[in-house]
Design a protein around this nucleic acid. Sequence first.
DNA 1: ACCTGAACACCGTTCAAGT
DNA 2: ACCTGAACACCGTTCAAGT
Lengths: 182, 182
Amino acid sequence: MLIDGAKEILAESGHEQFSLNEVARRAGVSTAAPYRHFSNRDELLSAVAEEGYVTLAEKLENTSGLARLGGVYVRFAHDNPGLFVTMFRSRPAGTESAAGRAAFATLLRAITAAQQSGEIATHASPEITARSLWVTLHGLAVLHLQQPHDRYGLGGEPEELATTTLSALLGLKIDDVIRGSE
Amino acid sequence: MLIDGAKEILAESGHEQFSLNEVARRAGVSTAAPYRHFSNRDELLSAVAEEGYVTLAEKLENTSGLARLGGVYVRFAHDNPGLFVTMFRSRPAGTESAAGRAAFATLLRAITAAQQSGEIATHASPEITARSLWVTLHGLAVLHLQQPHDRYGLGGEPEELATTTLSALLGLKIDDVIRGSE
DNA sequence: ACCTGAACACCGTTCAAGT
DNA sequence: ACCTGAACACCGTTCAAGT
């Protein structure tokens, strides 16, 4: 499967080093062969991204509690940096990701649940709250990936980073956040 | 100047399309010439990134109020997407950005000031608070750049996105955030 | 000190031709 | 329907040679 080969390369070499020719080489076919399955390099990467969104959405679906949700998001990026970057690379205009929408919908559901259970209390709508928390987790994930040497304290464990950051922003007591994640 | 040419290309074509050969072409020299000034493509991009950090730090330095600070950060990304991506691309291990540290220090100072003036009230340390807010603004900037068609409401004006997001997270009344940004 | 010209291995992509 | 082989324009990088 070309997509699996592409994922391997992303895991080993990262998004910047990804090469369609190497995918072909690994599959044991000529460099022209992938073009029978994908119209170009970008389409293959988009297919890879879709699978990434599905995996991430599954992980989020099985998680409750805001801090744990955040931990899952940042850990996914930590464990699959090449895939994560590929998922969130700038898309060609007009390209929609169905699985990406599904993943966000999962996050929205989880955050709405956290609001209803009283875990978090904000004046903003669930949509805006979810978007704001997503943005925060995403920034945390991205900067964590780029600061391998613990610059700015961003090199810690994904779960701890998520807890600390959410706690600082939402003004919750540390205990509340920890209790919400158990 | 090679760095200026590189910035032009980043502004016109973006980080993904950046080519060292084109920098040389634009400067009217052979493709080997840049190697007399930079040891490779990556070093030139790092030099470009440093200038970007200096520019961003200057803009932050001249801004007070948390919401306006956020607006400046997201607008910088909006107005200079290629440069912004270049600044925050994964660095070769062991590479430190002095100007990047300075930019963060500026953010830290501004946020400490906002805490002292009572604009924001959190239990966390200034460092953690600054890091958490940076992470949020960064995620907002990154996702804003990647969602040109207003998906998830991320396509709005940078200043409005910053205000809405900070307001939702910090649980401030909208009025407070707006007053802080004037 | 700085630049050129030519070369190398590598890319993404196309296309005629083969099965 | 799927793949190959060869070609194209493009990359980043090196290096001997020129001024």
